[in-house]
Design a protein around this nucleic acid. Structure first.
Lengths: 139, 139
DNA sequence: TCCTAAATGCAAGTCATTCTCATTAAATTA
DNA sequence: TAATTTAATGAGAATGACTTGCATTTAGGA
């Protein structure tokens, strides 16, 4: 993944914080919170303040570079590079594991809603919360 | 709706705050935030502190007396008496109008997930965000 | 190289929600 | 009915995720 090209392509200035956050998200294998991103700097000399991280994430959200996932059971937002997966999830409320679901079973339902209610659709969230196999055994 | 009977039925002590919150939620015609509930006391002599309201709502959630709705675009939780509607929504990000959807198009999908991943399912959220008819015209 | 708007760093602020702890009250028991 | 136990409440402080104000820096075009 060419970070610089992506930023230029999205008309975002190529700055150190943006490149760094992009790299961290790209190398992560799942969702990260703003705080996760912040923490991943702890051993490096040049860290980033949380305010900058939030601003960078906002600019990425606007350009659809990242997806946002709201965790109902934690009151927290998680972020992931957008192209990685479609945005439906199976979430374990015990260990916070997130399983990505590729299928979107509500696509045609959404089309119907647009028509019925005259909505201009923005996005939809479809997330399943439960206890995973391993945590069931552990409890 | 018999508030006292409901509480007794759920093994919840019949207290003034619980009866009051139940009544407010029952009389509301949509979702309310904890703050909405708090505000609805402003003209009355005996109000309730927010801490109590949150605790009452928690006890109601545990007993499935209320449903909780997380608003992605506002970072806020809304509550409604559970029996009123099934919990899927079409939400306008401009005016915060919430339209209740009766149909659940992911029921069989959820059954498949349980089987495939061995999850014990807790709940799922399915919410559509967009701009409603009226707000589109107003923009 | 200069210029300007945009981005950043830092600190302070916001706001929904939770917690602490002393007090009160509900429901059980004597 | 009174005493007891235990949960619930009230008030306010605390938390924690996120946002904002503002002075400074920097990217990218002139």
């Amino acid at each position: 993944m060419n970070y610089e090209a992506l930023l230029i392509n999205k008309n975002l200035k190529k700055t150190f914080p943006r490149l760094k956050v992009l790299e961290i998200l790209d190398r992560a294998d799942g969702f990260l919170s703003a705080d996760d991103i912040h923490s991943s700097f702890k051993d490096e000399a040049h860290s980033l303040p949380l305010s900058t991280i939030y601003r960078v994430l906002d600019s990425f959200l606007k350009e659809d570079i990242v997806h946002e996932l709201n965790l109902d059971h934690r009151n927290i937002k998680l972020y992931e590079i957008a192209h990685k997966h479609h945005a439906h999830h199976l979430i374990c409320v015990e260990c916070d594991k997130v399983i990505h679901l590729k299928e979107c079973p509500v696509h045609s339902f959404e089309e119907d809603l647009k028509e019925t209610y005259g909505f201009k659709m923005n996005h939809h969230s479809l997330d399943f919360y439960g206890v995973c196999d391993q945590c069931q055994k552990a409890l």
